[in-house]
Design a protein around this nucleic acid. Structure first.
Lengths: 257, 257
DNA sequence: ATGGAGGCTCCCGCAGTGGGAGGGTCCACC
DNA sequence: GGTGGACCCTCCCACTGCGGGAGCCTCCAT
């Protein structure tokens, strides 16, 4: 221990962290003091450790978890990239949800018109994939692309199928009505019967809001939803502005005995 | 307890929350079940509670704290606005810090050129205000506006003063050199002496990054910073693109004996 | 009547601190 | 060479918003 050493409080002020934080980072091995007095336990830092401390502070300010910070500090150059990707996704999610909140503030809680319709059974070509809840949008559009590639120019509307349980892993499917087998897809029959249906107008990433309202309606009217949620993509997203995209959301009701 | 009642698991699936969450919200009084069996403790929900449950879910998805959600649910119409404001500030902060991270990814940790300069004492007109850490930017520009209004067209550069300790409440000041008293401002003398100085080029909200680097330099060179951080606003933000804004950051060093 | 799904309470754990108790140390000033 | 006050130490508890699991009870369809 020599001249330049700083006790923890002074060092904390220098790098604008709290004493508690520094002790915690020491415990985790993120930023061990240069010297610890074996008798008193006093921590002493070298001033040039401030740079690392400030990097920690910056990364913390964008909510990078401490273990990732550890990886960055120990020279894992790839770690920063991963951090950035996660940040980006997180920011996007925040913005989406923020938009939903704005919508609620403007229009109040959505209570869209729900109708009960009788749907025929439909023979469809299906493309499936497994997604995590935050990647539903991306995986679904990938499925759409694959289905379009396989089925060519479809006559009917495409219908997305999404499980009601938002499990950590869920299988999404995109279908289109067809009379014959389509290579590269599997075939299936969507059951007919009574469906509760609601029309969502607006961007796809605000569908959950309307879907929730539909589920609430189903509950309030004493029905039990059955099977996956259907999304019928009425508009062409390539030619329709986001605000005008029309999607029918439908959920099968239990058969009236 | 009657027909329409749902046990917790079914209700959870309906409104896409976990059983744990519902129990938690019950404990907090956010969403008490319609009926609790006094013998078994079983919770039973009315289907029309799903709408409230989904509102909770939506608000949680944007990280609104449960107590705030409670206020919204109990009809505090102002609460949603407050929520939105906090969300907005939070998003802005994230974006700022994200930009800082991008910068670091691109350029590496900043290690700008620090020089030691001798500054004369300056007689200045001062406008002060108290800010919270996240409102420093706004409060500072308000001070600038007030100072400009009081001092007219200043000859010298404006200098901002910011305490080094980032306390929850801090006093920021904006000054401009003057030879006579300026009504509507207080007068002060900025001490002369040796300063560590660094030039920050870029948006004002990335100043903390460079400021930290300056502090780190000061520490590494065995100095002790003294007094507030100075920011000398060299560019005119009205006519300079953000990326080219030049600001000198300076911190007084202890007097060499 | 029985089995399995689903419910209950209670306790522990997480991350990343803040707060505080209870006690030892350092240092500047007298 | 004291002494007071600032500073440091280690523990422990609290928070938020849940998830996991133990150990037990209840509901309902067969």
């Amino acid at each position: 221990m020599n001249e330049g050493h700083l006790p923890i409080g002074r060092f904390a002020r220098l790098c604008r962290l709290s004493v508690k934080q520094l002790r915690h980072y020491d415990e985790l091995g993120l930023l061990p003091p240069d010297y610890v007095d074996p008798d008193t336990g006093y921590r002493y830092y070298r001033p040039d450790q401030a740079r690392a401390a400030m990097l920690i502070g910056l990364l913390r300010s964008i909510d990078v978890p401490l273990p990732s910070i550890g990886r960055v500090l120990s020279g894992d150059t790839g770690a920063l990239g991963g951090v950035r990707d996660r940040m980006e996704a997180e920011l996007a999610r925040r913005e989406r949800n923020f938009a939903a909140l704005e919508r609620i503030l403007a229009d109040g809680l959505p209570r869209p018109e729900v109708t009960v319709v009788r749907e025929p059974a439909r023979r469809v070509a299906v493309v499936r994939d497994v997604a995590t809840p935050d990647r539903i949008g991306a995986v679904t559009s990938a499925c759409v692309t694959r289905l379009l590639a396989a089925a060519g120019d479809p006559r009917g509307l495409m219908i997305g199928l999404f499980p009601l349980d938002l499990a950590p892993e869920l299988t999404v499917a995109v279908t289109v009505e067809t009379s014959e087998d389509v290579p590269g897809t599997s075939s299936d029959v969507l059951p007919g019967g009574l469906y509760a249906s609601v029309t969502h107008v607006g961007p796809y990433d605000q569908i959950p809001l309307t879907a929730h309202a539909l589920l609430a309606w189903v509950g309030e009217h004493g029905h039990t939803p059955e099977g996956p949620l259907r999304e019928v993509y009425v508009s062409n997203p390539a030619t329709t502005p986001q605000d005008r995209l029309v999607t029918h959301l439908m959920i099968k009701l239990e058969d009236p005995e």
